[in-house]
Write a protein that binds this DNA or RNA. Structure first.
Lengths: 204, 204
DNA sequence: CGTGAGTTTCTAGCATTGCTAGCGACAGGA
DNA sequence: TCCTGTCGCTAGCAATGCTAGAAACTCACG
């Protein structure tokens, strides 16, 4: 019976860990939803606790602090972005670079709070190191794949960083109302042509 | 005598207005200095009041709220940026585009808190409208002047927005440790060549 | 069927934040 | 010399992130 008891203990622990993991995800989802609905200023520990129907200290048993919650949201957001970019791959008609650019900017426009957590707020996520979360690597990998056809002789990863920087600049300056909304298409055209044409030049 | 008295009143009011304006600027300078020294999180109304040697409510007699102070810092920061860009104009050797890009990125790197207030935080400054502060127009004008030699057939203002977006993206992603620091030069080379070469292509 | 140990969750509170009401002091005109 | 209006300060409010310590619950054991 001792083995039976031990087994039952283990299984109970499993259940607890599972419930704990579910609650962990519940907190992340609630934080993201609240941020997307009312902005990150509305994401206070009190409102978040109320939304998940637990008291504040429970949040701190899962995350070191509020910033850790934002970080978790950001990392999962990178997974979302990677998926959205991958879905935009098989765009017939337009170039792969353009498809990726449009998908990226649509993500930034449609989910501004999430984008903010991912790339604007100072969340201190390891980016270049070995323990960079897989979600981030996936998202960047999608950008690399989109740039690859136009890279030519140029260093692929560096060119992708330039591509990403341009997209990020357009996304954030647009959100801050610092660019003329009416010229969105024209800007994207110019940016994409610049990045692509340079390659043709280099080949000749 | 009545005219003398009136004159004296006017002059006293002038002095008061002058002192008030000086204190106004004192607050802005203190906020900027504190932010540059310890980051915007350290800029609390209490610390700021202590630094200017007045009580908190004085701040609110000059500005509607903390956000208005940040906005004032940001606008004056645009003046600083415009001056720095203008100073970088007569760069012999390198192209004007490169000189502007390097000056811009140096500004963002050397004065990160100021740059944050100007272009990252949501400060709600009117950008495209008629009452856009002159400092902003000046700064953008400097970028336009730097882009002009390579614009070719392309729309100058739109191309400048793309140029700015790329610089802004590089600046913010670099600050957030999201780009490989070792490849800074290479990124800038690629970006500038892309923006310039496209023009040659178009001319041919 | 209790009972006690161990874990989990909550109540209550701290220090700090942006902001403001309302009092007191002071200068200038009569 | 008093009166008036401006000016700046003290003191306090509500909200924030976070935490200590009490309370409640779970579950193996007698």
């Amino acid at each position: 019976m001792s083995s039976g008891a031990r087994f039952s203990v283990v299984t109970i622990q499993n259940r607890r860990e599972r419930e704990r993991a579910e609650r962990h995800q519940l907190i992340i989802d609630a934080a993201r939803d609240l941020a997307e609905a009312e902005g990150w200023d509305a994401v206070t520990t009190r409102r978040l606790a109320e939304k998940v129907e637990y008291s504040q200290p429970v949040l701190y048993s899962h995350f070191k602090g509020k910033e850790a919650i934002v970080r978790a949201v950001a990392i999962q957001g990178c997974g979302d972005l990677a998926r959205q970019l991958r879905k935009a791959r098989p765009a017939q008609g337009k170039s792969r670079l353009r498809a990726a650019a449009e998908a990226y900017l649509e993500f930034a426009r449609e989910r501004p709070a999430l984008y903010d957590a991912m790339f604007v707020q100072e969340v201190d996520i390891p980016f270049g190191t070995d323990d960079t979360p897989a979600e981030l690597r996936d998202a960047f990998g999608e950008l690399v794949a989109a740039v690859e056809p136009v890279a030519g002789q140029r260093d692929l990863e560096t060119l992708t960083e330039v591509f990403w920087s341009t997209l990020h600049g357009i996304a954030t300056l647009t959100k801050g109302k610092r660019l003329r909304p009416s010229h969105h298409e024209a800007r994207l055209d110019l940016a994409l042509r610049a990045l692509s044409l340079a390659e043709q030049e280099e080949r000749s």
